[in-house]
């Protein structure tokens, strides 16, 4: 029994360790931004779409992209894709909270060394795209969308090695919500202000 005790104590840790280690690995990535506060905006009956694609899922998707070999290297470079889309259904109080959260996130990103790649403002929505660069490599992309008409707030974060030129393909292949907004931001930094 004396010999069994350490095994009994360590075994559950060995089983849960890989998932916990993956979470820690993601959180340590330069390009990772925690967007859980955006999902927290949802009320009981709100429509919410949460997406979490970690390193093992992305690498499996890259391997499985046999029919579309062009997308495989794009996915292989990524370590994490997280997204949160919340429909606020025109609730003005929560729309205000969402606006505040978007602004606070923008400030946090800019103070944290993120560069604003695009800002689009129109009657329907405001879109902000931030990138985190390391020399000439993009380590992270964060997209924030605040819909005025439909009251929808979108947070998307990609971390790892990101090929900006191919980011639209990730959106097309995996249907990650919010990535189509990147196409609106292709006009260049600062345009559409």
């Amino acid at each position: 029994m004396r010999f069994l005790l350490p095994v009994i104590l360590v075994l559950p840790m060995m089983v849960t360790a890989p998932a916990a280690a993956a979470d820690t690995e993601i959180e340590r990535l330069d390009g990772f931004v925690d967007g859980s506060a955006f999902c927290g905006l949802a009320g009981e009956d709100d429509e919410v779409v949460e997406v979490h694609l970690g390193p093992s899922i992305l690498s499996a998707l890259a391997r499985g992209a046999g029919e579309d070999p062009d997308i495989a290297p794009v996915l292989e470079g990524l370590r994490s894709i997280t997204a949160c889309v919340v429909s606020l259904r025109g609730d003005p109080a929560r729309a205000e909270r969402a606006e505040r959260l978007v602004r606070e996130t923008e400030v946090r990103l800019e103070r944290g060394g993120w560069e604003r790649l695009a800002r689009v403002r129109d009657a329907e929505e405001r879109v902000d795209v931030f990138v985190r660069n390391d020399e000439r490599i993009v380590r992270g992309v964060t997209v924030l969308v605040m819909g005025r008409g439909d009251g929808e707030v979108v947070f998307v974060n990609l971390a790892g090695t990101v090929d900006l030129a191919r980011i639209g393909e990730i959106g097309d292949t995996l249907h990650v919500p919010g990535l189509d907004e990147m196409k609106k931001g292709e006009t260049g930094p600062g345009e559409g202000r």
């Binding site: 919410v48 779409v49 949460e50 997406v51 979490h52 093992s56 899922i57 391997r63």
Partner: peptide, 28 residues
């Protein structure tokens, strides 16, 4: 559930769909 990763969590008006994956050997 152990060894499963939540990939998608969709909620709408009291309805919820959770999709979990267990990647193994580089494949889902």
């Amino acid at each position: 559930l152990r060894g499963w990763e939540t990939v998608i969590d969709v909620r709408d008006e009291g309805e919820q769909v959770l999709l979990l994956a267990k990647p193994r050997g580089g494949a889902i």
